[in-house]
Write a protein that binds this DNA or RNA. Structure first.
Length: 487
RNA sequence: GGCCCUGUCGUCUAGCGGUAUAAGGACGCUACCCUUUCAAGGUAGAGGUCGCGGGUUCGAAUCCCGCCAGGGUCACCA
């Protein structure tokens, strides 16, 4: 039988990084087994489900490249299917209407807590007479449907990752399967759909493990064969808590916006709870597909290591062909506001300027861990006006090198602007003056970039071009002189 | 609190009763080299009493039991 797996998010929020990993594992398993990856939308919560969220989830999955072979199936469009099943249970006496209101339930729960009894529904509506029911109906109460929970039944989950896990129905109660608004509850809809869609393997987060006996009960009353389950460990934050909103980036769109590449994110994510046979780490997606098996999936929870993600991302960034890098960087440059006046467009239109941009990219491709760092590091290239701070300039106010800049300027005026020529020129020059290269290089770097760290200055000069290099040096010297002799 | 899951360097992990340095790799960290700063690269290194305590065995991180710790879950949310 061919493998059929599903990813079943609920559109009550943006795509969480943990959900993305669940989607990835399902997708990988499907691809590895040459099976089918199905997308199902669990939108049975009418209050919280939002169309916008569905949109972001779909676009995030697409961005990641985790495309689905079937679906998306929306549970809200399958209401009659669940109703039909509910009716069957009603007819067989496996389910019953319950008229208890939420406040009544809350009261019962309070009492149970006080008496230190387990928090189980007491089953008071199980044996309702028809007259009692019509009284409730006339009061306008909308009933829910509850499943009759059998006494003392042993349920075992055959988990592909954790082995056999045993539960007893003792800990369960007559849980609700249809809400008063007629919508099915998660455990009911999920089991019904998994069966109906012919799902063979359910890979999901560990937080669903304790739901599984309830779903098993559904399979039982219908006489269905349950799928194979596999519960993935939870992703924890640095405090060993389930990764939460507070902990910085947790939603996929945030990773996208801060310049992570989907391939890098996927590669990092798969390592969070899975290792290949050879324990190899950096792998292409197709390589991962080829190696991915459920055997390699880990049971223990994993802490999200942002630093390692950044490292992984830097590995992928440096492999990016220059053209791709430019294409991917454009949105970040625009967002930084440095392409607002169409400057970027002119750069890309002019072959000469584009060539410069390519050189720039080559200088930064292996210095950048996230794409969004690129605009801030290269602002001196895209903007004409580079502010120079007095506090920084002060460092060179009394240095010897500063006295020779005018002369150095003349030297490079006629120089061919390549890194090699520029370096030769500068080194010859400092030798003749008895200076150290650094005496010129350090202030030079600051004049040109407004930063104290940058790629090699000679490369920077070349990429800026003669004109801009000369004016910035002049401006730097001028500003420094103002500092020394305030008017 | 009940039920359930998990427990190997700071982090992700390899390891599935026994071959060569008495636990290997990756990220991170430290030092040095390269060097005009940074990044990259190179070299070296620190970091683990395999949660703890009992067993079983000639032999245990690996099997069994107990304990402890962390996490998950107990909704007309999924």
């Amino acid at each position: 039988m061919s493998v059929r797996v599903r990813f079943a998010p609920s559109p009550t929020g943006r795509l969480h990084i943990g959900s993305a990993r669940t989607a990835l594992y399902n997708w990988l398993f499907a691809k590895h087994e040459k099976g089918t990856f199905i997308l199902r939308i669990e939108d049975t919560d009418r209050e919280r489900s939002k169309k916008e969220y569905l949109q972001t989830i779909l676009s995030d999955l697409t961005w990641l490249g985790l495309t689905w072979d079937e679906g998306p199936y929306c549970q809200s469009e399958r209401l009659s299917f669940y109703q039909e099943l509910a009716q069957q249970l009603l007819n067989k006496g496996n389910a019953y209407y319950c008229y208890c209101t939420p406040s009544e339930l809350a009261l019962k729960k309070e009492k149970a807590v006080l008496e230190k009894k387990p928090l189980r529904y007491d089953g008071s509506c199980r044996k309702l007479t028809s007259t009692q029911r019509s009284i409730y109906e006339s009061e306008g109460r909308k009933p829910v449907l509850r499943l009759v929970c059998p006494e003392n039944v042993h349920l075992t989950v055959h988990d592909a990752i954790r082995g056999e896990i045993n539960f007893s129905t003792e800990v369960l109660d007559d849980f609700i399967i249809v809400k008063s608004d007629g919508f099915p509850v998660y455990n009911f809809a999920c089991a019904a759909d998994d069966h109906d869609l012919g799902i063979t393997h359910v890979l999901r987060g560990e937080e669903h493990l304790s739901n599984t006996p309830r779903q098993l009960l559904i399979y039982r009353v219908f006489g269905w064969v349950p799928p194979i389950f596999g519960h993935l460990s939870i992703i924890l934050d640095e405090n060993r808590k389930k990764l939460s909103k507070r902990e910085g980036s947790t939603f996929l769109d945030e990773f996208r916006e801060s310049g992570f590449l989907p391939e890098a994110l996927l590669n990092f994510l798969v390592l969070l709870g899975w290792a290949s046979d050879e324990n190899k780490e950096k792998m292409s997606l197709s390589e991962i597909v080829q190696k991915f098996t459920l055997n390699g999936v880990t049971k223990s929870p994993a802490i999200f290591d942002f630093k390692k993600l950044e490292w992984m991302n830097s590995q992928y960034i440096r492999e990016l062909p220059v053209e791709n890098f430019i294409k991917l960087a454009i949105p970040f440059l625009e967002k930084a506001g440095w392409a607002a006046d169409g400057a970027l467009k002119t750069i890309l239109l002019s072959e000469d300027k584009k060539e410069r941009l390519r050189s720039l990219v080559m200088l930064y491709r292996e210095r950048v861990k996230r794409l969004n760092e690129f605009p801030v590091l290269t602002r001196y290239y895209f903007l004409e006006d580079i502010p120079l701070e007095f506090s920084t300039l002060k460092k060179w106010a009394d240095s010897k090198g500063i006295l020779f800049f005018e002369e150095f300027l003349k030297k490079i005026q006629d120089a061919f602007f390549t890194p090699e020529v520029l370096e030769r020129t500068l080194r010859d020059f400092v030798d003749s003056k008895g200076l150290k290269a650094g005496d010129l290089i350090h202030p030079l770097r600051y004049f040109l970039t407004g930063q104290e760290v940058s790629p090699g200055v000679f490369e920077v000069m070349a990429v800026l071009g003669k004109e801009r290099t000369l004016t910035r040096i002049q401006k730097g010297v001028l500003t420094l002189n103002q500092l020394k002799n305030p008017a």
